[in-house]
Nucleic acid binder design. Structure first.
Lengths: 155, 155
DNA sequence: TATTGTTATACTCTATAACTATA
DNA sequence: TATAGTTATAGAGTATAACAATA
């Protein structure tokens, strides 16, 4: 009997959780669209940033920071090296390991990507005034902290 | 020369865009984790909700609403039917098409899933008081509208 | 001929396991 | 023997194209 109560098929209007998921997805897609003209896929963008943050680090170091398995890193660095954005330099004191470095072209590519991300932020928040933006950032940070996501932010 | 300026490798602290992407991803993962014990994968959850919102709709109707290609719908409905959550009923007036309906077990499964989503919302917003929650929802809705995402919300 | 649903096929992505070269 | 990186292999997931039944 109880199972045949008239249920509201349509739930109450979208909640915060749903909004977050959708907006996060939307923001990610928009960013990717801005990266595409630069020839950068999201995964490459992430690796580029991680290398820039710790130039000279080994593949494994960067990989474990991004939670990418070794074979995955090999493929990604292969891509970036083929495109002349990243360079593998042998470590003379341990000839098994490589140090990863951005090339000049890699630096400028990353700069463009960061600028694209910046302008995407602007487009995303276009409807909010500065006070609202600050408030939103505060609330989101609060949630992130409460969820223990402090370290998930890359650099 | 200009290319050799000391650049801040580490960007200014995470921005709203990044926070949104990360929190959205986090929220989606948390929800999926809550759905798993019910034997529901995210894709099935979405289809279940779409069917509940318009019971009797054809596969194509549901599929186009969720932006899923026909072969994908076939596989998904196969899954759900095999698990006794959804039923295909032939349409007598057009014997090519099926109408999709939830079974009793499908309804209760969806109910549990919706309850799980509800409790996940609670967990997610645990750090905010009611006024903050309302404010956050307002700000997010503002962005969603400004981004033209009005219809992306399912039901 | 057009449409609903289905099946068959190919492709991308990723993860796991085996291998090499240094240490 | 252990470790950094690589290669080979296998699997999941998805998209595209061809197909059957009905209109």
């Amino acid at each position: 009997m109880a199972s045949q109560l008239p249920r509201p098929e349509v739930r109450p209007p979208a909640r915060v959780r749903l909004l977050l998921i959708q907006l996060g997805y939307h923001a990610a897609r928009r960013l990717n669209a801005r990266l595409e003209p630069l020839g950068l896929e999201p995964r490459h963008y992430g690796v580029l940033r991680a290398i820039a943050a710790r130039e000279g680090a080994t593949q494994q170091a960067v990989g474990s920071r991004l939670d990418l398995a070794p074979p995955r890193m090999v493929a990604l660095i292969d891509d970036l090296e083929k495109r002349g954005l990243v360079e593998r330099r042998r470590n003379p004191s341990d000839r098994r390991a490589y140090g990863l470095f951005l090339t000049a072209s890699g630096r400028s590519c990353l700069d463009e990507a960061l600028a694209a991300a910046e302008s995407e932020e602007e487009a995303l928040l276009g409807g909010l005034d500065p006070a609202q933006r600050a408030q939103l950032e505060l609330l989101l940070r609060e949630i992130a902290e409460h969820q223990g996501l402090g370290d998930a932010v890359l650099p």
